[in-house]
Amino acid sequence: MIVTTEKLTKRYGDRAVVDGVSLSVRRGEVYGFLGPNGAGKTTTIRMLLGLVRPTAGSARVLGEPPGTPGALRRVGSLIEGPGFYPYLSGRDNLRVHAARRGVAGTHVEAVLEQVDLAGAAHEKFRRYSLGMKQRLGVAAALLGRPELLILDEPTNGLDPAGMADMRDLVRALAARGQTVLLSSHLLGEVEEVCDRVGVISRGRLVAENTVEQLRGDTVLLVRADPIEKAHVLIEGSSVHGDVLHVRQTDAGSLVRTLVRADVDVREVRPLRRTLEEVFFEMTGAA
């Protein structure tokens, strides 16, 4: 496990902004941390980096307590927008960061290339567009080849092409075995690049699973005639118009049951909900 949290909680006043979150990120996976605005994603990430002290519960990052040099040196992060010196160039900002991280300055050029910012590296950060600033933030996170990359809404402010670039970058990193914790409220982004997803809503982790599982491959859509008879025969089924939704995956035994009872089976297929539907269902945000 790269990251584990145990009932991690942060209260501001008497409001639990993060409430008993127990999540785990495994080595080599891209973990999507999904939740609507204000759900507590950034606060959780701040606790993982030692910026904010938990009110209760605990966390381990790479086996170390959050915020210790042992953990921080091996984690690259971008939290809620990049924080750089406006009067320095992108390159100088990375040099400063490299010095703090104890990383050779030569690595600066490599990460600038990686985020496609080499051409604008001499310009002052202040003059960067939103997307360029964001990419510089990712570049800083990549400095020193960290074992874990924590990116809090890295596509914030990026145009569609920029978003696609970011997804490609994350996928390329993942292909090399990079562990990534990526927070987002963009479902498409998470669906495309993440292996597993933790869904947070109002401070609580409401689900943690693979994208496939969350989407509900466990639900079968059944079109049968007469449908009422099928509904009675199959336990745990529900009628949706002229089809049934069934919470099980063994299509074979389901079909056998129906055929033996003389029910015509016209169609059986896994019901693929989009992650969006699942998300709205779980966060009650619809």
Binding site: L51, T68, P69, L72, V75, I79, P82, F84, R100, R101
Partner: peptide, 21 residues
């Protein structure tokens, strides 16, 4: 305001070391 303390404190060194810097 710049958010550079955040970048500084997550870079690696302990907070005391960052402050000493």
């Amino acid at each position: 305001g710049w958010g550079t303390w955040k970048t500084t404190l997550t870079a690696g060194p302990r907070r005391v070391s960052a402050m000493a810097g």
